Amino acid sequence: MVPGADPSVEEAVPVFKESVGVDAISAKENSVPVTVIEAQVPPQTYYLLQYGVFSTPERALQAKEELLKAGIAAGGDTEDQNRVYAGISPDREQAKLLSNQLKTQGVELYVRELELPGFEKAAYGGEGDKLTGFFQLSSSLVGKLSGLSSTLLGEGGPNTVPASDMKELNDLHQQWTQNITALPTGLPKEAFASATSLEKAMNSAISALGEYNKNTAKEHIWEVQSSMMEYVLREKEFIQFIKQ
């Protein structure tokens, strides 16, 4: 719990692993026929810092506000609105280091493994290669942004991102933007809103990292973390809509 937080808010429930299925929401259940294409998308694993599982969405919202007031990232699951997260990393050990660092500030967190399922068939009215390429670029960008932001938060002093790394990220982001812009016309209608949210979250992360390089304020790095949590949780939703 964040120091000074409302003690009536429930403590975290230590659940450590989540594997996302597709039974709850699936493009297969659509009443409108969809085009099914082949795509080669491997599973992806990320490590979220879970702040707590709360009794109501209102309690979860209160917990998010506590984290934000403490200058920490805050994210919530679109499916389980009572679950609150405070960070993300593509690496378990890196996630543990960030969790331990926040523990010294009085913030208790659990490392929760989140696996996004891979798939070989998808409901999509476009080319399978484009969809596969989108997920490849997403994986690369999320891995780099979440890993880099975790590293920067764990370092003792402010350090700017090297120009070569920023160029690589900006080039990847440009490719990703071109890719996602072409996706919506072939998506099932249920997946369209998720794609829009993905674009917003990724753009926010890139923008925040650019701002950090101007003044090295850690609040921008926490914004990258928040955006990456939002992205991964929305990507989970997106996969549920298109996986066959």
Rank of each mutant, 00 (worst) to 15 (best):
P7A: 07
V53T: 04
Q105K: 14
Y110E: 05
W222L: 10
K28E: 02
I221P: 15
V36C: 12
T104P: 11
S150R: 12
N30K: 01
P162H: 12
T160C: 05
L68C: 00
V84G: 03
A208D: 11
A163E: 10
K200D: 11
H220Y: 15
I25S: 11
V84C: 07
S164D: 13
A39R: 12
K189G: 10
A201M: 09
I37D: 09
K167E: 15
I206H: 10
T45K: 15
G4I: 06
A201R: 13
Q50H: 02
G71A: 11
L102H: 02
V15H: 12
K243G: 01
K69I: 01
A201K: 13
P3T: 03
Q62Y: 02
E155V: 07
A70I: 00
P57Q: 07
Q50M: 03
T181K: 15
A24K: 15
A201N: 15
L183G: 12
D171M: 03
E38P: 08
D77C: 14
W222D: 14
D23F: 13
I239R: 11
F238T: 10
R83C: 04
N30A: 01
F16R: 10
Q175L: 10
N170T: 15
S8M: 02
K130S: 08
K144N: 12
G147R: 09
G52R: 00
E65F: 00
E11P: 04
L68Y: 00
P7I: 08
I37S: 11
E29N: 14
V9P: 00
T132C: 01
V32D: 13
L131D: 02
V2I: 11
Q105C: 07
L109D: 09
F241I: 08
D80Q: 05
E65G: 00
V84W: 06
E18Q: 13
A63Q: 00
P57I: 05
N100G: 11
A70C: 01
S227F: 05
G76A: 03
F241W: 12
K17Y: 13
A205D: 03
L198F: 04
A205K: 02
N100D: 14
A163P: 03
P117L: 05
P117E: 04
L48Q: 02
L187Y: 06
K144S: 15
P14E: 06
W222T: 14
V15N: 11
E29Q: 15
G126Y: 03
E65K: 03
G133W: 12
I37C: 13
E190D: 12
G52C: 00
G128D: 06
Y212V: 04
S150L: 07
Y231L: 02
P90A: 08
Q101Y: 13
Y110S: 06
F135C: 01
V34P: 08
N159K: 13
T185E: 13
G125K: 09
T160G: 14
V111C: 10
S227M: 07
Q62I: 04
S207K: 09
N179V: 04
I37H: 11
Q101A: 14
E199T: 12
M1L: 02
A5Y: 00
L169S: 02
P184L: 10
V53L: 08
A12W: 11
L169M: 02
V142S: 05
K214L: 08
Q174D: 13
G87H: 04
E10L: 00
G133N: 10
V32T: 13
E223Y: 14
E237V: 11
E127Q: 10
K96P: 04
I72F: 07
K167Q: 15
L114W: 09
A201V: 05
